[in-house]
Design a protein around this nucleic acid. Sequence first.
DNA 1: CGCCATACTGAACGGCGAGTCAAGTCGGAC
DNA 2: GTCCGACTTGACTCGCCGTTCAGTATGGCG
Lengths: 208, 208
Amino acid sequence: MGAVRQKPGKDRHQEILDAAARVITERGLAETRISDIAEQAGVSPGLILYYFESKDRLLAEALTFANDQFYLRTSREIRRITSAKEQMRRLIDLSVPGYLPEYGRLDEWALWIEVWVRALRDPQMAKDREVLDQRWRDQIADIIRTGQRSGEFPQKDPAELALRLGALIDGLAIQVIMNDSEITPEKMHRACMEVAAHEIGFDLEPSG
Amino acid sequence: MGAVRQKPGKDRHQEILDAAARVITERGLAETRISDIAEQAGVSPGLILYYFESKDRLLAEALTFANDQFYLRTSREIRRITSAKEQMRRLIDLSVPGYLPEYGRLDEWALWIEVWVRALRDPQMAKDREVLDQRWRDQIADIIRTGQRSGEFPQKDPAELALRLGALIDGLAIQVIMNDSEITPEKMHRACMEVAAHEIGFDLEPSG
DNA sequence: CGCCATACTGAACGGCGAGTCAAGTCGGAC
DNA sequence: GTCCGACTTGACTCGCCGTTCAGTATGGCG
């Protein structure tokens, strides 16, 4: 028996988190077994518990890990854009599940729902969720502040606007990943843009 | 051994669904065991599976059952009101978790999240969710149509408005039941009323 | 060239909980 | 009153899965 020890360049901890996130996305938190994660990561089940204290901790870590990925991606994309209105559009592009073909069905949203369920009972996850959610709202608020500083947007409370827009995006994204026949990615995108324009107070026309 | 047979006035099926909904609310879907439901209902574990084919089916039924309760309650309340604007206010009153002290923390929202998670993988639950969600949006749209007929509200697509308002309420309600420090029931209520007024196009002043 | 620490394996253990079942109880029909 | 069938019980089975652990390979160090 034994083991081909792993190349030093690789990080098992991260590999396992990544495998876990993929399995959770596919099977759901409740149906995720340690052996699934092991298989996905290409290691033995025993090794999972060698790196993580328990299944529970691993799952919790995997959820926030996946959320970080999404945050970092959007954050990077947005920083490249100067116009606040275009930043807003890009944020919405990236937030609508299945809108950009290159990003699959944007299954981060499915994981996000799992976070909510867990956060209802797990105090640590509840704390993590609040931090993650605050970061999400701040991202929106920052765009609004940018637009207000540049004169693109009128003066209104950015935090309040971010709260409302964030909630709207959350609510619509849920319906979209559920494949609700009432709403498509395109429709969600339009709804988000229109409400954003209306509530923040900018004009939709150019390249809308 | 044996059994005191139950009074004919009672409906075991319903009793068990009710017990299940309460247990799920308290412990979460994943942590709900058959024996918990039995205990809550005051019967033996065996009886649960006498009335339900499997744990899975029971849980699924319990979730839609609880949602029905919420729908019927709000529906009844709203039908009593004539002014569309007041109907809208009442709907929001009832939808904000913890806003009306007499309705506890309105834990239906917690169950609703469980529905979402399950609907991602269970086709039957996916169908049920869509029906339930459609009913929820229709409830909002009907209020808007009422207001438009009476001249209280201007003419805009009621279905589209309902979609957006429903999503906003969903998104905000999630944050509230998570005890997010950024938002309180009162704040959510104000946000919903303001966006409703702004998007539907009515004035907030009277008894606002 | 041994030797050790570390990474890793997979078989085995143990507990838990869904589902089964044989037996008991009781209301009502006749 | 007696019998039937629906209702109810709780002990039992059985499979599953998280966790443990004894053992194995391997890279590096002296």
